[in-house]
Design a protein around this nucleic acid. Sequence first.
DNA 1: ATTGAAATATGTTCGTA
DNA 2: TACGAACATATTTCAAT
Lengths: 156, 156
Amino acid sequence: MKSSNESVKIDGIDKEILRFLMEDARKPVLEIARNIGISGAAIHQRLRKLEASGLISGSKFIINPKVLGYTTMAYIGIYLDKAMSNPLAVRELSKIPEVLECHYTTGNWSILIKVLCRDNEHLMQVLNKQIQHIEGISRTETFISLDQQIDRQITI
Amino acid sequence: MKSSNESVKIDGIDKEILRFLMEDARKPVLEIARNIGISGAAIHQRLRKLEASGLISGSKFIINPKVLGYTTMAYIGIYLDKAMSNPLAVRELSKIPEVLECHYTTGNWSILIKVLCRDNEHLMQVLNKQIQHIEGISRTETFISLDQQIDRQITI
DNA sequence: ATTGAAATATGTTCGTA
DNA sequence: TACGAACATATTTCAAT
């Protein structure tokens, strides 16, 4: 994989291929080939190159958590005690399956996390019985996402 | 798709299938079949059912933005003027490709967005020349993600 | 719900341009 | 880099259980 200060060069055909697959990872290569007018073998070869460059980091099925009854998403800003080693807190947070993201951040908080819960009561349980119990976590600020309006990847 | 207060029932085999495909959307169904010991046709049928239930909302290739030189991720809390209609602000925000997520939130802000930029200077440009120019946006608070430690989907 | 088999479509490799 | 042909796999459908 390329280092972060050395951008990979991709041309228009690479972009077309990527745009198709970012929309639908299971779109057949041959279908893409017919769409953009080059052979399947050529696309295959380009994909191998793109994978080798590290630009493609994999593919995922996307699950709709609402269908499983998970309807409450929230961001939580976390203040850590000065004495607390951040990696330890992160390790504890990663054991909580409701925690989907965790960022070290500039600004007020040490850490910003995203959590996904079934409902507000479940969120309260996760906060009071799990997150607040982690050593070094003193105070938290919770922002419930009432509605997510935009959710996308980088524009290629 | 099921309504949000009526959870879909999935059994252990569904979970196994989903776990494989959430890891790698292009994993062949037949390979999964060999792994969990049922026929490909059975998995095919279960996947059709899961899609019909709305639990699977699609699949995506995951792009590593760092390889394209996008290394600065930030969350921005946005205060909107009372007079401002939120949907208008969201429509303007969605025109900015650097804005990857947008949530209506409880708490201090009206809106919380996630942006991805090449570097701090690019972030500053997006803030000062695009976001701050949107009508109704009075003040913003920026939290730069120094490092993302957790990034995952719901645990099935 | 699951199976195996048949038909169709796709993935993959390779020699050549 | 791209191509087409050849081969290996996978997807999809279906009758039967």
